[in-house]
């Protein structure tokens, strides 16, 4: 069994208005050394199977559902559990 830890973020070319608001608010709170904030989604998916098969499967489900690759990028790690 593997636990996939999946991170989905906007691509750098996409302006994220929520992250901008958070960054500006942190600055207003005096956290003036905060230079950038990225907001994304985090998923944990448990899958049965061997590592290679699960790796391919997670890549496909990110590409087809968990991320919209028109504006988002994804990365993940697999942990045997």
């Amino acid at each position: 069994m593997f636990k996939a830890k999946i991170y989905v973020n906007y691509k750098p070319s996409v302006l994220d208005p929520k992250a901008e608001v958070i960054k500006n608010t942190l600055s207003r709170l005096g956290q003036t050394n905060v230079k950038d904030v990225t907001v994304g989604k985090y998923f944990e998916v448990l899958l049965e199977g061997n590592r290679d098969a699960v790796d391919q499967q997670v890549d496909a489900l990110c590409d087809q559902m968990l991320a919209n690759v028109n504006m988002e990028a994804y990365r993940y790690s697999l942990e045997e559990v």
Partner: peptide, 17 residues
């Protein structure tokens, strides 16, 4: 339709939120 790939691009949060 954009999610389904029938149209190009995507719709994101309004800049004003």
């Amino acid at each position: 339709l954009t999610e389904a790939g029938l149209l190009p691009g995507a719709l994101q949060w309004n800049t004003s939120l």
